[in-house]
Design a protein around this nucleic acid. Structure first.
Length: 348
DNA sequence: ACCGTCACGGTTGAC
DNA sequence: ACGTCAACCGTGACG
């Protein structure tokens, strides 16, 4: 365990190498872009490298999600017992069948879809290792994955899944996420399972409050602590991931502020609130109006002042500059539905 | 000056 | 328990 309290980039922002920016910042980037602010300005204001801003915006533009991808882990196996069984049947039915033919049949029979169909080489390997001796019982990862869960779409499950509800202790799950994210297609929505308002989603207050997110010495809390916090932050209003409400412990005072992370509790490093970043400036609202920002189509208020830039910031939307951002496109329905949140305007 | 892209060094989590 | 691997991360530099 390396002690990573964050590094400071050229812009003075704090980041943790290898770790995603906090969702609050990510969301802010998208918000600002939607306001027509240029990426370079966003970069400067939030002190995030422009490459990162570009990447996040591009991702948002493409997927509608602000959330980072799933870090670590392995792709779910495509050679599920069901697939192996089918391959076996094909092979038994036609011992001379080619792997590519099997592949086609898997697709044709609906055993797999194009996203999870094994490669020809995988099929060959299965034929060789598991079905080479047809009298041999298929032993697929005996012990685990007993329940039939065929055709797990990598797309919708893997990158955008969220670990299942935790025990109140926040202990790590040892069992596989039994309940896949709702929906089964294109993963536009990662199902950020929160019903927070944007201001809550931003989690800025607590997030930016050093006392809230850092330890007594100003260090960020341990990841495990964040993990439990984040998990508690899921109200499961959408029933996403089948979160069991009863398993959620709302006792954390951070629970309504800390944004959930896409896949890992360790996503939310407290270090981002580090002083060098100056995301926070007490009392300063970059938004000159001082009013909360009603988001088009969502009716929610964005307390944008919470993320602060110490830099002088050109006013949000200048009339003489037409908003260059593709994010201005209405198709993403502003921020109410970004990140697949479908954020209801529950709390004012 | 701005922005897209990519190498890099890093983290993460399934296997 | 540990190592490997392949995913992802943001930064910084380049064009």
């Amino acid at each position: 365990m390396k002690q990573t309290y964050g590094e400071v980039n050229q812009l003075g922002g704090v980041f943790v190498n290898g770790r995603p920016l906090p969702n609050a910042i990510r969301l802010r980037i998208v918000e600002l872009a939607q306001l027509g602010i240029r990426p370079c300005d966003i970069s400067r204001q939030l002190r995030v490298s422009h490459g990162c801003v570009s990447k996040i915006l591009a991702r948002y533009n493409e997927t509608g999600s602000i959330l980072p991808g799933a870090i670590g882990g392995s792709k779910p196996r495509v050679t599920t017992p069901n697939v192996v069984k089918s391959i076996r049947e094909y092979k038994q039915g036609d011992p001379g069948i080619f792997a590519w033919e099997i592949r086609d049949r898997l697709l044709a029979d609906g055993v797999c879809d194009k996203y999870n169909v094994p490669s020809v080489s995988s099929i060959s390997r299965i034929l060789r290792n598991k079905i080479g001796n047809l009298s041999q019982p298929v032993q697929y990862e005996s012990g685990k994955q007993a329940q039939p869960q065929p055709s797990i779409s990598y797309n919708h499950l893997y990158p955008y899944s969220y670990p299942n509800a935790m025990s109140p202790s926040g202990a790590k799950m040892s069992s596989p996420p039994g309940v896949p994210v709702t929906g089964g297609h294109v993963s536009i929505s990662r199902g950020w399972p929160s019903a927070h308002t944007v201001s809550n989603i931003l989690g800025i207050r607590a997030f930016m409050d050093p006392t809230a997110v850092t330890g007594p010495e100003g260090y960020p809390p341990k990841l495990e602590d964040w993990g439990s916090v984040n998990r508690a932050a899921f109200p499961s209003a959408h029933g996403v991931n089948g979160l069991d409400k009863s398993s959620l412990d709302p006792s954390s005072t951070l629970s309504s502020y800390v944004p959930p992370c896409a896949y890992s509790p360790s996503n939310q490093y407290g270090v981002y609130s580090g002083p060098a970043g100056s995301y926070v400036g007490p009392g300063h609202h970059w938004q000159a109006q001082g009013t909360s920002l009603p988001h088009p189509g969502s009716g929610m208020a964005i307390h944008s002042g919470d993320i602060h830039s110490s830099m002088p910031f050109k006013h949000a939307v200048r009339d003489d500059r037409k908003p260059p951002s593709p994010l201005s496109k209405p198709q993403h329905q502003a921020l109410s539905s970004i990140h697949g949140l479908g954020v209801p305007t529950s709390s004012s």
